[in-house]
Each structure stands twice: as C-alpha cells, then as structure tokens.
C-alpha cells in the first residue's frame, strides 16, 4: 500500500532524507522514531505529497509521487488521515463541525454526516463534547477531535506526527491506545515520535531514523 523506493530529499537549507526504502502493508502499525531533525516529519509530508523527493519514488495506494498531478492530490488526501502535535482544529466551529468538515468537503449528505460523525465521536469518547469549541477542551480532548476528524472519512492510513508531543504521559498513553483501536479496525497507522518510553507500552514494527538516514528496523 505504501512504498518508499530509494527516496532522497535535500532541503535548500540542508538536511532532508537519504536513500530511504521501506514499505507498509494495509492494517499495519508503524512507528518512526528518531531525534528532532531525523527526517520523520519529512517522510510523513512526502506521504501526503506536501513535498516530493528529489530522487526515488513514494507510492501511496495507486498514487505515485513521480506521476501525480496537482489536481489529484486532494483525492490522495481524502484517503490519508493526518494528525499533528498542534491539532490544527478550527477554533470558530464546534467539535461536531470540525469532525464533519472532511465529509462536507467530499459532498456526503447531511444525514450521513450526522450518522458518521456521531459514530466517530463515540469511538473517540467525545459524544458529550460535541457542541464544545476547541478552546473549551483539554489538549488530550483536542487531539481526540483531530483523530475523529481524520478517521471520519475512513482513511486507508492515518499519519500521526508527534501526536503526543504536547501531552503528559497519562494522556499520551490514552491517545496511543486510541490510535491502536483505530488500527484494529483496519486503518494503517504511521506514527512519528521521539518518545521511546511511550511506545514501549504498545510495541510494533519500528523504523529508526537519524540525520535523515534509515538506521534499521526494530521488530516487536
């Protein structure tokens, strides 16, 4: 489903990634670990085709970084969920509207949106917060909303870029467990983190990166 083949990218300011090769199958849970600047976010950004490799290719489902057209990128992103350390929620609308957004964009009917958002909020345990605004929620709850927004459209893969970076250990573990529940329903998850202690609780296939280079794979 996802393949990195001889991928290298060098930013104008230097750094980037060098000669990355790996693949991810449907339903897998992958950790990308490494210190800041190791290239974890760069790999995730390549997966939603925000940036493109200088050499090699990134393939996600049937989209290839070398052949994808700009107008096809939204189609790819409709199949890829993304969550970030800073949640990226819209402050001017409530939880329900935030989660409904990706469904509205692809033209899902109002009744179906109501059904799917309600179900998704149940899954992330936020039914009681559906009319709250992001500013009224804790960090952990905001990250749950962000996860709900990403999985409401039933993506093939969920990309998580330091999703627990702003959270204390207890809440971080709750978020990790939630991601595993999402994975259990068939969605592949790729999570970038530098929190080794956290992922020891839920071991899985892990790629280690350092200075933009692949430093080996750890199996659970």
């Amino acid at each position: 489903m996802i393949t990195f083949k001889d991928v290298s990218l060098r930013y104008d300011r230097g750094a980037g990634v060098k000669n990355i090769n790996f693949s991810v199958q449907r339903g897998e849970f992958i950790y990308l670990i490494g210190p800041s600047g190791a290239g974890k976010s760069t790999l995730l950004r390549m997966l939603f085709m925000d940036i493109f490799p200088n050499t090699g290719s990134v393939q996600v489902d049937h989209f290839d970084s070398n052949t994808i057209k700009r107008r096809q990128i939204p189609k790819l992103r409709q199949k890829v969920g993304m969550i970030f350390q800073d949640y990226k929620l819209l402050d001017d609308r409530d939880v329900f509207s935030n989660v409904a957004l990706p469904l509205q964009v692809i033209g899902v009917s109002t009744r179906e949106i109501e059904r799917r958002v309600t179900k998704t909020l149940e899954e992330v345990g936020l039914t009681h917060r559906r009319l709250y605004y992001p500013s009224e929620l804790s960090g952990g709850e905001q990250q749950r909303v962000s996860i709900a927004r990403s999985i409401a459209k039933d993506p093939l893969v969920l990309l998580a870029d330091e999703p627990t970076g702003n959270l204390d250990m207890g809440v971080a573990l709750e978020i990790l467990n939630l991601l595993w529940r999402v994975n259990a329903k068939g969605t592949a998850v790729i999570m970038a983190t530098h929190n080794i202690e956290l992922i020891k609780n839920r071991p899985s296939r892990t790629f280690r990166l350092s200075h933009g280079e692949f430093k080996g794979e750890l199996l659970p």
Binding site: P74, L76, R77, Q78, M82, K88, D91, L101, V105, K153
Partner: peptide
C-alpha cells in the same frame, strides 16, 4: 489562513 491550511490537509480541492 488556518481554514485554508486545514482544508488543504483534509483533501479539499482548489475549487472548494
């Protein structure tokens, strides 16, 4: 700006 960024991330087309 946040709205545009979020819309981009969730797969909204340029037209939308």
């Amino acid at each position: 700006f946040d709205w545009i960024e979020t819309m981009r991330l969730i797969g909204a087309s340029d037209f939308t």
